[in-house]
Amino acid sequence: MTEAGYNFAYLDEATKRMIRRAILKAVAIPGHQIPFGAREMPLPYGWGTGGIQVTASILGPTDVLKVIDQGADDTTNAVSIRRFFTRVAGIATTDATGEASIIQTRHRIPEKPLTENQILVYQVPQPEPLFRLEPHRAETRRLHALADYGLMHVRLYEDIARLGHIAKAYDYPVMVNERYLMSPSPIPAFDNPKMHQMAALQLFGAGREKRIYAVPPYTPVRSLDFEDHPFRPIRAPQACAICGSKTSYLDELVTDDAGGRAFICSDTDYCQERQAAPKAAAE
């Protein structure tokens, strides 16, 4: 049942149309930031309003929605956003990655590979990959227009000169379609390779900064690096204490005061599927 008095998915149709136009432009120019007239939403700026507006604009009554934060369906903000859409759209929701048609995410890409029938919507706090190097938007617009990314390369060079390694652990800058430098949102660098040639459409919404961008299916996405210092995805070297995975991204949990640690899958659905699988195989 939807909340009485609100349009399907909260936004009025004119606003949805405006956002869809922005999405189309974004898809036409992979990695390029499209300004859009973001609306005030019932959740605060910085808490996913961009992702919510993108999802609200593409959601239909037969869609199945999954919402995750830090890879988990159960974190408080994911719960809050899922509740919001249940209230204003009444659509079906799921925890299972494979069953969702739209997945809205904050800070992770699901471990399970996505398909052409799925759309991944990322929540983006800061769409401008150069913002720490050049805070003025008027200038970064020019740099993108000229494909002048010297600033970023210099930053990576400096990291290696100083630390021996590139220091970016998350929100690691990528080159999309060999043309635009893009911020993948604060996903761990470990997740970057999943973006390359992904079968699903990837949409990025930044509500506070009022930008939308996109990576269409099967688009090359390359993490910046040097030939002799290639990009290497980093994860904790342990295995998941619950399902045993040695390849998924792990959360580190402090279990006691004596330095005790446990490592478990960040992607809760993935972990659960793996736990259920050996039982299924045994049956």
């Binding site: 910085g46 808490w47 309003t49 934060d69 830090q70 974190t75 903000n77 706090p125 996903i187 506070r208």
Partner: peptide, 16 residues
């Protein structure tokens, strides 16, 4: 919104 969003979980990035 943005200042207070720092209260949201950021442990995945912190782990990285």
């Amino acid at each position: 919104g943005f200042v207070e969003h720092l209260k949201l979980p950021h442990y995945v990035d912190f782990q990285s």
